[in-house]
Design a protein around this nucleic acid. Sequence first.
RNA 1: GUGGCUGUAGCUCAGCUGGUAGAGUCCCGGAUUGUGAUUCCGGUCGUCGCGGGUUCAAGCCCCGUCAGCCACCCCA
Length: 428
Amino acid sequence: MAKSIQAIRGMNDILPEQTPYWQHVENSFRQLMQSYGYQEIRMPIVESTALFKRSIGEVTDIVEKEMYTFEDRNGDSLTLRPEGTASCVRAAMQHGLLHNQIQRLWYSGPMFRHERPQKGRYRQFHQFGVEAFGLAGPDVDAELILMSNRLWQKLGMSDDVSLELNSLGSAETRQQYRKILVEYFSAHEAELDDDSKRRLQTNPLRILDSKNPEMQKLNENAPKLIDHLDAESKQDFEVLCNVLNDAGVSYKINPRLVRGLDYYSKTVFEWVTDKLGTQGTICAGGRFDGLVEQLGGKATPAIGFALGLERLIELLEIPEDVQHENNLNVYLVLMGEKALSKGLPLAEQWRNEILGLKLQVNCGGGSIKSQMKKADKSGAGLAFILGDDELEKNIITVKFLREKKEQEMIELSQITDYLKKNIGLIGS
RNA sequence: GUGGCUGUAGCUCAGCUGGUAGAGUCCCGGAUUGUGAUUCCGGUCGUCGCGGGUUCAAGCCCCGUCAGCCACCCCA
């Protein structure tokens, strides 16, 4: 036997046992987007490397050490997308969607980052993303947060997540604040840990994010971004908070919430959970007013968020009825060759006549005992038995697999009506 | 990328201070003729993650490697 090939590290198969959870989340999300008038956009998984370098930022970890970058046959540098926003902006720009227009868009799909895999962190992972273009806020900011809040409600996981908010200010004020912060930390350089010393050079705002308890005191005394906001950012942030208050959405202002991608500005937020260990952010986003211009377009205000499906599904418990909604209605047991040649066409006929009927025909023969076992395992509510006896009398034997009820014999001609009555489906 | 823990049948796991592997489950067959999920009986399945080494002898010890988990880091 040849040596078997395994999946690439950090890239997971999603098995039939798990797919109902994915489908449930995907369906809920799609409905949610429709209910807010957002439209789906689909982008390629591979983009020019330059796109991510210019948007996410040259010195971020994602770009520096986590991208799947390769040369194609033409010698062009391509990259498996590590996130969706850059692609979405590129696509919208390229097709003129941003030309004096408002766009409310969503997408979903796999993203790729070469990190060390851990629970809730994979090399291929899946995100839903939402982006709104052409609106300066803070009204859309609130809309996006309310929208995400509604998703948790829909999925019954509101108790598992909490909202953290901050404002990074405009690009200019962030630049100024950055200087103030660098001065502060430089004055205390001896107290910085190694990571923070490194960040002082590369991305000083991230020092605030440190999990090192020894850094906590230093961080608490650090100048706060929120005290250095420009008037407009401050005003917008207040409005946003007011809307959330009125809508009854609770939140915590986290002055140390900064986000790792360079393009964020003004409003930023995260939905976090304490149930997932260290990978506790399940949804995060913020405003990126400078990005479109940075990628060569006309200055366009924008905001978006992304949520991680693997993490979300980890938290998800789906209700019984949803769990069973893919179950078969009927498993058709066929005894003998005559039944076989009659049974498959019958099944076709029933599927034609009854919209949404979930019916599986036994394949591969077997004794009635083994066929009944398969019927049970299939999850079907009813077993239909078709054998020589039934053929002779033009009937089907119907056995109830999930309830205590005597089995019944039904005339072939009555089966369609019988099914409609018994499984609550309507004719086509 | 750094550190720690783990890796035995498809799945969940046992295997004492080294002596060439077991349980439950799953699957298949049977318990009077065409009836599942319960019960009883029988059966199939492993180069003990992979590669080296130590030893008369290794699943148990050592080294390497791959994979998973946890923390750091990063982030959804």
